[in-house]
Simulated assay, not measured.
Amino acid sequence: MTDYLLHVSVPLSLLLIILLLAQQYLLKPLGARTLYALWVAVPLLLLCAAITPLLPKVIEAGAILRYQVGIQQVAAAADDINWLFWLWLSGVMLCSGFLLLSYISSRAQFNRAVPLSGSIMPAYCRQADNSSGPYITGLITPRIVLPHDFFSRFDATQQQLILQHELTHWRRGDLHLNYLALVLVSLFWFNPLVWLAYRQYRHAQELACDALVTKDASKAERIAYGYALLSSTQQPSANWWPLTHHYGDFNTMKQRITQLQRQQGISKTAVLAVMALVVSATVLLQQPVMAGVSKTQQLAAVMRIEPRYPIQAAEQGISGYVQIKFDVDAQGKVSNASVVKSSPEKVFDKEALRALEQWQYTATGKVHKDQFVQLDFELDIVQAGIERVSVTPAAKKG
Rank of each mutant, 00 (worst) to 15 (best):
residue 3 D to K: 09
residue 10 V to Q: 06
residue 18 I to S: 13
residue 20 L to Y: 02
residue 20 L to A: 04
residue 20 L to Q: 03
residue 29 P to T: 03
residue 32 A to T: 04
residue 33 R to C: 02
residue 33 R to Q: 03
residue 37 A to E: 08
residue 41 A to R: 04
residue 47 L to R: 10
residue 52 T to H: 11
residue 54 L to G: 07
residue 55 L to A: 00
residue 63 A to Y: 15
residue 69 V to A: 00
residue 70 G to S: 10
residue 71 I to P: 09
residue 74 V to T: 11
residue 76 A to I: 09
residue 82 N to P: 07
residue 85 F to R: 14
residue 90 S to P: 15
residue 94 L to M: 13
residue 97 G to Q: 01
residue 102 S to R: 05
residue 106 S to H: 09
residue 107 R to Y: 14
residue 107 R to G: 09
residue 110 F to N: 08
residue 114 V to D: 14
residue 115 P to G: 03
residue 122 P to S: 08
residue 123 A to E: 14
residue 135 Y to F: 15
residue 136 I to M: 09
residue 137 T to V: 15
residue 143 R to L: 03
residue 145 V to L: 04
residue 154 F to P: 06
residue 155 D to F: 02
residue 162 I to F: 03
residue 162 I to G: 00
residue 163 L to H: 13
residue 172 R to G: 07
residue 174 D to V: 00
residue 175 L to V: 00
residue 191 N to F: 06
residue 195 W to F: 13
residue 197 A to Q: 10
residue 201 Y to A: 10
residue 204 A to L: 05
residue 205 Q to V: 05
residue 209 C to T: 12
residue 211 A to C: 05
residue 218 S to K: 09
residue 223 I to P: 10
residue 226 G to L: 03
residue 230 L to M: 15
residue 232 S to D: 10
residue 240 W to C: 15
residue 256 R to M: 01
residue 260 L to C: 07
residue 260 L to S: 03
residue 261 Q to S: 15
residue 261 Q to V: 12
residue 277 L to P: 06
residue 278 V to P: 00
residue 279 V to W: 05
residue 283 V to F: 02
residue 284 L to H: 12
residue 287 Q to F: 12
residue 289 V to W: 15
residue 289 V to Q: 14
residue 292 G to K: 11
residue 299 L to W: 03
residue 305 I to L: 08
residue 305 I to Y: 06
residue 311 I to F: 08
residue 314 A to W: 07
residue 316 Q to N: 11
residue 317 G to R: 01
residue 319 S to Y: 05
residue 327 D to G: 04
residue 334 V to L: 00
residue 334 V to M: 00
residue 339 V to R: 05
residue 354 R to N: 07
residue 355 A to L: 01
residue 355 A to F: 06
residue 358 Q to L: 08
residue 362 T to A: 09
residue 367 V to T: 04
residue 367 V to Q: 11
residue 369 K to M: 08
residue 380 D to V: 12
residue 384 A to G: 15
residue 385 G to L: 01
residue 387 E to K: 13
residue 388 R to T: 04
